[in-house]
Design a protein around this nucleic acid. Structure first.
Lengths: 216, 216
DNA sequence: GTCTATATTTCGATAGAC
DNA sequence: GTCTATCGAAATATAGAC
């Protein structure tokens, strides 16, 4: 019983670590598989193989395939929202939008799988995260539209439609993740180098910032 | 035998029409189902139900699910290529790129399912149309990059990176199809009106044309 | 907490009567 | 050319020994 008690104590602490680590590994594998095969094309077996675990263990940590998917999409959404911070507290559109493009491009480079899972989810009608679209994203969008409109009213940038400017920022930056395979194919099948990523960033920023009248 | 011969003649003509019509119905249903569920998530049963045909009939016209999918993607690719004509024979960037944006936005509105199927295919590594990317798309892209560079050399537009300008055009215009559900959700759950589509088009054209220095 | 074996369901595809 | 019935494969999910 002493032995049991001790084993129990040790096991309890260990279990937390094991759980955390296994969940991390499973989520990383799931993100990649969901991105490459879509929700329907992904199989628990593929995810298990990539995570290096038996398929049954996935069901031990995540009851269903949909639960696992839901967690992956949720994590990506959080990253997206954090990126939005670059937009805030900027003195003007040149700094705010420039920083936002930088942040979004960095996410496209560092989290290409997550971006694809998000894109796929939205493209299929957002069956899992529709409530996020209607609440959090909606509020964030309205807030940024107001901020951009303020800049316009203060004469800090050209009078463009703030909503469509936002869509353009999203579309353009995420393109390098979601259509990364196409970009790579058109780059002789090679991934973009550091230099090419800088060139992409600069090109996007130059055209957009000049497009809203804050560059000559 | 006379009777048989006559029936045979009539049947032969009818068969062609029936085949054409059934293929049309099946392809339309498949485009929608593939767009909404992805290749993996789509089932022959769903497509058959939407087409109003027994599942076995789909296999009569298209041997496998992949054959059907391949035809859908191919048709979309053709539409994309035709849209590129707007780019050509333009006296300058203002007309050429303006017309290209118009054409691409119209496709996003009229063929949202096709655009999504294409996006999904590329996002998943283009398992079916990789050869198109490496040949036709590659050649088209190189040609347009050269055309844009010529405009730059002639001083008709600001010196931007032509390749990234193209990516921006693709990303921005296709966003209204691929992320149409998100756009709609942020539009109070309603589809864009004629007026809103015009507004979107004008916004995109204004920012990009000013961004490349052909608008004040 | 792990993992093998398996139950259950669903899907792609086909056979064969009409 | 149509359509019911069904096969065989594959996937999700679970049972139960360790």
């Amino acid at each position: 019983m002493n032995e049991n008690a001790q084993v129990s104590r040790i096991t309890k602490a260990k279990r937390t670590d094991i759980r955390r680590e296994n969940e991390r590994v499973i989520l990383a594998a799931a993100e990649k598989v969901f991105a490459e095969a879509g929700f329907g094309g992904a199989t628990m077996q593929l995810i298990a193989d990539m995570a290096g675990l038996p398929k049954a263990n996935l069901h031990y940590y995540f009851a269903t395939k949909e639960d696992l998917y839901r967690k992956v999409v949720h994590d990506i959404f959080e990253i997206w929202l954090r990126a939005a911070d670059s937009f805030d507290n900027a003195p003007g559109p040149k700094e705010g939008i420039g920083a936002y493009v930088d942040a979004k491009m960095d996410i496209s480079r560092r989290h290409p799988f997550g971006s694809k899972v998000w894109a796929s989810e939205v493209m299929h009608g957002a069956p899992v995260i529709q409530d996020y679209l209607e609440t959090t994203l909606r509020e964030w969008t309205d807030g940024r539209i107001a901020a951009i409109q303020r800049w316009i009213d203060e004469g800090k940038m050209a009078p463009v439609n703030p909503r469509h400017l936002l869509y353009m920022l999203w579309a353009t930056t995420q393109h390098y993740a979601d259509f990364g395979h196409q970009v790579e194919t058109l780059n002789d099948g090679r991934a973009l180098t550091d230099r090419q990523w800088r060139e992409a960033k600069d090109s996007v920023k130059t055209i957009i910032l000049r497009g809203i009248g804050v560059l000559s």
